[in-house]
Nucleic acid binder design. Sequence first.
RNA 1: GCCCGGAUGGUGGAAUCGGUAGACACGCAGGACUUAAAAUCCUGUGACCAUUGCGGUCGUGUGGGUUCAAGUCCCACUCCGGGUACCA
Length: 935
Amino acid sequence: MEYDFRNIEANWRKKWAHDESYKVTEDTNKKKFYVLDMFPYPSGAGLHVGHPLGYIASDIYARYMRHKGYNVLHPMGYDSFGLPAEQYAILTGQHPAKTTEQNIARYREQLDKMGFSYDWSREVRTSSPEYYKWTQWIFGLLFNAWYDLDSNKTRPISELIEKFEDNGSYGVNAHMDEDWWKTYLLEADHIFSSHFEGEFTDTDWKSMSQAQKEALLMNYRVSYLADSLVNWCPALGTVLANDEIKDGVSERGGHAVEQKKMRQWSMRISAYSERLISDLDTIDWPDNIKEIQRNWIGKSSGARVRFQAEKEVTIEVFTTRPDTLYGVSFLTLAPEHESVEVLTTAEQRDAVADYVSNSKLKTERERMAEKKISGVFTGSYAQHPLTGDQVPIWIGDYVLAGYGTGAVMAVPAGDQRDYDFAKHFNLEIKNIFAESDLSEKAETSKEATLANSDFLNGMNYYAAFDAVCERLVELGAGEKRVNYRLRDAVFSRQRYWGEPFPIYYENGIPRLINTEELPTELPDVDAYLPTESGEPPLARATNWERNGMPMECNTMPGWAGSSWYFLRYMDPNNHSVFASEERIKYWGQVDLYMGGAEHATGHLLYSRFWTKVLFDLGYIPFNEPFKKMINQGMILGRSSFVYRIKDSNTFISFERRKEFETQRLYADISLVDNDKLNIEGFKNWLPEYANAEFMLNENGEYTCGWEVEKMSKSKYNVQTPDELIEKFGADTLRCYEMFLGPVEQSKPWDTKGISGVHNFLRRFHRLFLENETFSVSSEEATAAEMRVVHKTIKKITEDLERFSWNTVVSACMIATNELTDLKCNKRQALEPLVVLLSPYAPHLAEELWKNLGHSTSVMNESWPVAENKYLEEDNFEYPVSFNGKTRFFLSLPVGMSAADVEAQVMAHESTAKYLEGKTPKKIIVVPKRIVNVVM
RNA sequence: GCCCGGAUGGUGGAAUCGGUAGACACGCAGGACUUAAAAUCCUGUGACCAUUGCGGUCGUGUGGGUUCAAGUCCCACUCCGGGUACCA
């Protein structure tokens, strides 16, 4: 009876499904543990061997925690809204829901074959109305919320309205766009006086019309509609969030992106910047992800400084180096800066208009690519707040409108860009450093001593920072300021296949649809494209209205549904709330989150944001979603190549390829074994190779070349799990993917080693066989056998506790080898090993467990405990080294004192030889580790 | 440019607290079984020198340092991977 993995695996899969073995229910008598995988987008290509890497690791951990007695929540679902299904729909006219359905079926089939312990009764799909009903509901929560800076919390908008009724805006400290009030001064129907700077009284509030109130509240809402500068991608026909852009082009497709002012929904994530940074300290995530998030949020400490310009204009700048204030020789405004027009003098009008319109034409990418220094003088001056000097105001596109105030104080002495700008336009470079040579470049060190800086002379950055900020406060010309790079997130997409907003417009005022009426279902459309007039696809729907009032035509971005899905798994079929309070309380945070690092600035940031909102509003008792996270590395492909002699149909083996001029062509990796080409298979692969001739190597084989690349169809290097499961079984594949190396590490896929792992499972299986039939002995195991077992229990338990999945497989191999050598077939020794192996090879473990005579599943067995009595050894084999070089071994009793060990070593016959007649200076004895004789 | 990782045999990797570097596996070489092959089993396998046996020297990207002892800690550098950027 060989290891018949095909039958074993098929049978157990069937039985698990039939028994609903992995269904989990809330049980307050048991401790909970929540193991989660980042749910996949079900693409048409299906899974390749790289995808399940993280799933296998988390599944092993989930099974391990079950053995340890935890009630484990281990669900799976699909992030099923997304662009590929929509693009396929545009091409074929097929509804994206149908494509999605088919892809999900394929994914499920592949996932099932792997033997995962998912509770499929809890599956969620972000595109199902049952699910997105609650995504819409959460959108509503954010819409009906504002951010209170006093309590540092998200609060219901109703509280804000009460405050307005009582005392207007006085006493309200809300997070909002700093310049929000300026738009009110530009509007035709002035509701506030021209002195309005954001404060209004309860009388003002009460005198407003409903529409005016709503418009005002929009400045406070956490989810708000505003005209904002967005990243517009013409090729994709939609706006994109900052995290969907890489290197200035769209992450998906690599299309150009331009800045455009559009009326869009946004999320006030910037209000949460500080918490998103500081709470990173409370979670156990990989350092690099934390670092990426810190950089993305981009906290920088500095100061705001106000310069009084002509025509009653105040230019406010943000600087991280207020200590260099005396070095300011000009100001630079972004071309989009609001004061550009007012400050431009008549003489400069044409030049400025030219420059501004020119830079508007350029995309951000073009501006970045063009390293040329450009700028133009406005003709105006501003007064330096400390010296009173008049400094010229310039415009330059190296200043970004979206960061800080869109204006900088230029200190050529202390900033390289300012320096370059000054050199280029021949502007003044004031040396404000005592010992710095500015003939070549700026002095950017914070250690440099200041000079020509009045009361700051002799100080460096660290001393001068506070001193200058104090002075600025006294003068009312500035103050310390922390600035964040993180911008509010655009939440509208001009797409079909996404969540519709639960919003309709009453006379242009956005209104939220009541919870009872949700979900707002995605309407049918005749085509999945924008309308002729450029409206999003939803505008094509007939009846896309509510009581005659138009519905919002944008849909939500991909990250909406994925920002809270981990909560829905807790209570996936609840029709009255997104998840019940008791269940959220029971399951709590995700204890182990497994997924790719590529979501660092998207999904992982947005879920933290939504979690904080739900926490603030009292819906969940924790403010971070994922307590611990591990990122699995990417598995790369290993492409194979054949070498065709130019202008022929003859292929030459890799070793001899230099003999001719050859062309390197991909060969499908399924035709290559150990870099040796299956020649017949290759001929049958593509018609053009049917008559191919081969020049072989000296062993009569055709060797292929290879290269490590990303897996892709066009490179013929995609390894699907299906083929390997067919050939070796899921248990082998599970063990092998773990055996490849640390999960976090990226590594090339190489099928070479899989036979070794398969072999190990066969050898393990064979421990239970005698004369080809299942047979174990009930004799008591020997001390040596028990030592192997308990050593293995200890090792595997420690390895799993530190998430070292790969070394567990080695430990199992070692145990199998040792017990095979001991010819051990005793139940007492083998039973615990079956439990140890079951997280890795669940099918085989179940089969052996059943054959051992158990009627219950091995998955519920408690985890074996290593007992010291089996591990203790009487003697320790001391490596004895001389000056650090190990020379011989000496077996001594474990309990022997250091002094006795030293004496034994000195008495040893070999010692004299290695001492070479010298007297030891010192003898280091580390009990149960090493002896080192220093000469 | 800045920030964060990493570099160990022919290959993937192990070495958890500074304490025997190379576990485990692949590959390769040799052998057993076989008419043969597959499968299986056994032996060897970091490099160099020695080899009749003992053995010896070197060795974890490079150079330096700390230590009785360094893959592990410190300093400088090289290369590779990831993130990010006219961010003031």
